[in-house]
């Protein structure tokens, strides 16, 4: 039987642990987007807006609906690529300047939530129409 010297085994284990600790910080783009966006609000589904909107939003994070939500450019770019890759393809010719910034201003959204804007605002447990999880199950099906 080949016997590894215990000292070598211990040293190798120590080295592997030292390598594994920083490697645990490696995130996929989806994980990064979820972590950063949902620090303040639910991660809105990328397919709710066209790619032009996500380009606008992720390029102006220092002025994000009245808040400074700045990120280092490498992280913003990684999130931008993820959102754009999963965006809606319904408005292929829209210019970036015209792209909507708020999901809550899209006509289908307003139609679905007609009487609920005021109710959400006035209910302290919900707070805002932007708090999807205040009413919906946030498991991808959006059931109420």
């Amino acid at each position: 039987m080949i016997r590894f010297p215990k000292a070598a085994t211990a040293a190798a284990g120590c080295l592997m642990l030292a390598i594994a600790l920083p490697a645990a910080g490696q995130q996929t783009a989806a994980e990064l987007a979820t972590q950063e966006c949902s620090a303040c609000h639910v991660l809105y589904p990328p397919s709710f807006l066209p790619p032009q909107s996500w380009q606008r939003i992720t390029s102006t994070l220092d002025q994000h609906f009245g808040e400074d939500a700045s990120l280092p450019e490498d992280q913003a770019a990684k999130i931008r690529d993820y959102l754009v890759a999963h965006a809606s393809s319904r408005f292929p010719t829209m210019s970036v300047d015209q792209a909507p910034l708020r999901i809550s201003e899209l006509s289908w959204f307003k139609g679905e939530h007609r009487r609920l804007f005021e109710r959400a605002r006035n209910d302290p447990a919900i707070g805002s129409i932007s708090n999807c999880g205040g009413c919906h199950r946030m498991d991808g099906y959006y059931e109420k």
């Binding site: 707070g127 805002s128 932007s130 708090n131 205040g134």
Partner: peptide, 15 residues
């Protein structure tokens, strides 16, 4: 963050 940091706060969108 509310006036008492021992309490949970809420973002402007309710999280």
């Amino acid at each position: 963050h509310t006036a008492n940091p021992k309490n949970a706060g809420r973002t402007r969108v309710g999280k």
